[in-house]
Amino acid sequence: MSSETTLQALQELDFTRDLPPEQMEKLAALAFEVHFPENFTIFRELEAGELIYLIKSGQVALFVRVPGKGRTTILTLGPGELLGWSSLFPSGRKTASARTTTPVEAIAFNAAQLREAMEEDNALCCSLLWRVTQIIASRLKATRLQLLDIYAPSQEH
């Protein structure tokens, strides 16, 4: 995929759409496109994965193995969402396994290269960390809601 096509893809994704042009171009230079078939394991829990993905199309299920219960899907991610953010941190191991439930197209980044670019460019670092923080915060909120089991039957009339 040419860097021009990558740039265009990044301009369409929610995660990157509002980045300043110079930051967008830096990211486009680091990005490459990947395709996964259905039922493909992209990474496994506790792996020191090297790649971070922005999903362009398709769906990925994040699951953990729970003793006695087997594979338990905890979240699914779709177009525009960030997959594998834990690799952004130097010691980051994947906190869940990721498996496609449909064919998936994604933009991938090498986490080490991305970290290096962020260390060299504070503005880029700030932009990306804001976005990653927002995603982590929204997933935290969603997890709280999931833990509350809000649809459980309650005593009413």
Partner: peptide
């Protein structure tokens, strides 16, 4: 919120579908 093995759709709380 909780998928069974047959479920092929989204897993997660409904506000996340806005994304």
């Amino acid at each position: 919120d909780r998928a069974d093995p047959s479920w092929r759709g989204n897993v997660g709380v409904v506000p996340m579908l806005f994304y």
